[in-house]
């Protein structure tokens, strides 16, 4: 028996966990759930069983906007020719010490 044709599929939610305060949230995977509260419970049950979490974000996958890998050239500006953005480009006299 297949799923009844009018049963909507439970949406996919991407899960991000902050393991400790001071660190940023990291993408750890995804869960299926009907709504945000259930997605949060699922994320906790699936991705923090070994104490891996201080904070959980769940985002319905359809709300996640991703860059197109083909746009790499345009979107991610090669910084090689903008050396004035690098600290090593500038000379600080030794007498002044660290800066």
């Amino acid at each position: 028996m297949t799923e009844a044709p009018n049963t909507p599929r439970l949406p996919l939610w991407e899960v991000f966990i902050r393991p400790r305060n001071g660190l940023a949230h990291r993408h750890v995977g995804a869960v299926h759930a009907a709504d945000a509260e259930m997605a949060m419970l699922a994320a906790r049950d699936v991705y923090t069983r070994r104490g891996e979490g201080r904070s959980i974000w769940v985002v319905e996958a359809r709300h996640l906007h991703a860059s197109d890998p083909d746009d790499k050239a345009a979107l991610f500006d090669p910084a090689d020719d903008k050396v004035y953005r690098q600290p090593t480009h500038y000379h600080v006299p030794e007498e002044v010490g660290d800066m």
Partner: peptide, 11 residues
Amino acid sequence: PMLEEELALAN
């Protein structure tokens, strides 16, 4: 009833 619930009930 679903995989996520397997983990929840086991927890």
